[in-house]
Design a protein around this nucleic acid. Sequence first.
RNA 1: GCCCUCGUAGCUCAGUGGAUUAGAGCGUUUGCUUGCGGAGCAAUAGGUCGGCGGUUCGAGUCCGUCCGAGGGCGCCA
Length: 604
Amino acid sequence: MFTKEQQLIEEKIKLFCQANDIALAELKWQPIPFAGEWGFATSFFQTVANEAKLGKGNKVPVPQKAQEIATQVAGQIGSVDGISRIEAVKGYLNIYFKTSDYAKKVVDEVLTSKNNFGRGEKKSERVMVEYAQPNTHHSFHIGHARNTILGEVLARLVEFAGYETIRASYPGDLGLGVITVMWIYEKFYKGQEPEGVHERGQWLAKLYVEATALLEKKENETPEETAKREEYDAERREMYRKWDAGDEYVRNLWHVTREWSLEELREILRMLDVKMDVWFYESEADEPSKLIVEELIAKGIADDERPQGGAVIVKIDEKLGLTKEKYRTNVILRRDGTTLYLTKDLALAKIKFEQHHVDRSIYVVDSRQSLHLQQAFAILKLWGFPQAEKCYHLGYGFVSLPEGAMSARRGRVVLFKEVYDEAVKRVLSVEAEKSADIPVAEREKIASQIGLGALVYSMLSVDNNKDIVFDINEALSFDGRTGPYIQNAYVRANSILKKAGVTSNELRDASYDYELTKHEIELIEQISQFPQKVQQAAEEYRPLVMASYAYDLANTFHSFYHAVNVMQTEDEKTKNARLQLVMAAKQTIENALRLLDIQSPDVM
RNA sequence: GCCCUCGUAGCUCAGUGGAUUAGAGCGUUUGCUUGCGGAGCAAUAGGUCGGCGGUUCGAGUCCGUCCGAGGGCGCCA
C-alpha cells in the first residue's frame, strides 16, 4: 500500500551508503513489530557482517555497529511525505506512517471493495484441486470430512488469490469392497431400500460390515462354517467376474446401489456448500488406463514381464537415471491384465491435462499415499507431460478415534452426519437458553451454521500434516479458539451496526485524526493484513494460515468491542469513524470466514 | 534395511533465520451485575523449544548425529 514511500527511502539509503563507502547488503523490508504505530523497517546486520568479512572496520560487535549505521541513515533521510517519523533502534531503521492516513486508507479500501476485499490480482494459471474421493457403497465419515473441508478451503483460497480454479471429485466406485456390498444386498436384502438419503447411505455401510463378517476367516471355524464362507466368497468373485464382463444385470445393480451412495455424497457436499465442477469416477478411468499401459510399453517406459509370468512394471528410478532408491519400481498392470490404482491415476491425470488444460494440479489425499503419488507424478514426467512438475500432493494426517483407527470393515467409524446432528442439537440447547428472542423457526438454520462452524474450524485449526484423534467434545466446543467464537465477533459487529441503523450503502467520509485508542489501532492493523494472508495461505497451500488469521482478527475485535463503546461515543465525527471501522471489521471477518467455508449468521 | 512426517506449557496446538521476558486455546487461580447480547473481556501461574555437535553477526527455525512416536515401501486403495 505504501510502496512509493518505501522506494523513495530505499534510494536515499543507497545514496548514503555510496557516499560513505559502505557495502550495503540487499535491503529486506518488513513491518515493524506492531506496537501501536504502523511502519516498515530494515536492519543493517547483514551489511555490517559483510563489512567485517571484508576486513573493514575495527572489532566493534555487529549489533552495535548496525545501530551506528542505522542512526546515521536516520539522520540523513530528512522528511518524507506521508511519513511521520524515522528512528534507529537496535540496528533497525524504523519508518513510521502518519497514523490517521494509514487508518483511513485501510478502512476505505475495505468499504469500497466489500466482498472482494483481499482478492488477489487475476493470474493466468489454471489450477485444479482434486478432493472428496470417498468410496461408494460406504457412508461418509469424519475422515472424508477432513479431506473435503481441506480441499474446499484450499480451492476457495486459490480462487480468491486470483487463479482460475476447477474443483474435482473422484469417487472410488469399483473394486472388491463395492462388489462385497452388492453381493450381500443381492443375497439377503434384495428389493429393500430404506427411505431417506442418509439412511440409505448408512444402510449400505452396515451391509458392508455384515458382509465382511460373513466373508472373513474366523479362528476355530467348524468345517461347515468354512464351507459356507468359501461358498459366499465364490459367489462374490463370480459377481465381480460378471461385473468385469459387463453383465447387464450386475451392471444395473451396480448403477442403482452406486446412485444411493452418490446421492448421499451430493447431499453432504450441499450441506458443506461445495460445488464441484468436475466428477471423475474410478470406473471411467479403468478402460482408458489400459491403453496407457500399452503406450508406456511401446515407448519403453514400462517393462512387460507377462511373458515370464509377471506383471507390467515401471522401474521408475532406473528410467529417471537415479542411482539411489527413491521412487522404486511399481506395477501398473497385474499379471491377469487388470488395472491398479496407480494405472487409473495416470489416466485421470491425462484427462486433467488434455481435456481440462490445467497448468497445475493439486491432489488432496491422505499423506500415507505420498509414495504412491510421487510415483504417479514421476511416471507422468517420464511419459512427457510438462505439467507433471506442477502436480502437488497436499497430504494430511489421518483422523482416528480415541479407541484406535477407524475401520469401515468393522463398522468402527464416526459418520459425518452423526456429528452434524449432534452439533445442531447442542447449539439448539444453547440457543434455547441464550437466544430466547430469536424465533424458533430461525434457530434451526442458525444452529446448522454454528454447528458446522465449530466442526469445520476444528478440522482447519490444526496443520494438515498432523494426525487428528477425533474427540466430539473438542470438535463441537463453542468456547475459545473455535468457529463460533469467530462467528460471535461477526454477530457483535452486526449488532452494533443494526442498533446504529447504518448500512454499508451509506458511506460517509470518515477521518481518523482524533486520538485513536490502542484497540482501534490494533483492529485496523489486523484488517490490513488480510490480503497478504490470502496470498500466503494460497501460495503455501495452507488453510491453517487463514484459520489462524480469522481467530486473531476476531480476538482483536472482541477486545475492541469490550474496550470501546461505539454507540456511546459522544463526538459525532468520532462515532462515525468508529462505525465505519466496525463495518470494515465485519466485512473482513465475513470474507475470512467465507474462505474457511464457514457461514456468518447475523444473530446467534 | 530404505524413505516420509513429527517431538515447543499439565493437555491440544501456533510459531520454517532476525527486535529485551518463545505465543494461543483448554484446564488452574482471580476479577468484570446499571453499557453495542458474557458463545465475551481482563488478569494469573505454567516451557533446559527431545539430547549432543555444527553453520551463522544472529538458530525453536538451517545442517549432521543420536533418542523417541507414527506412517510408507512392485500385482490393496
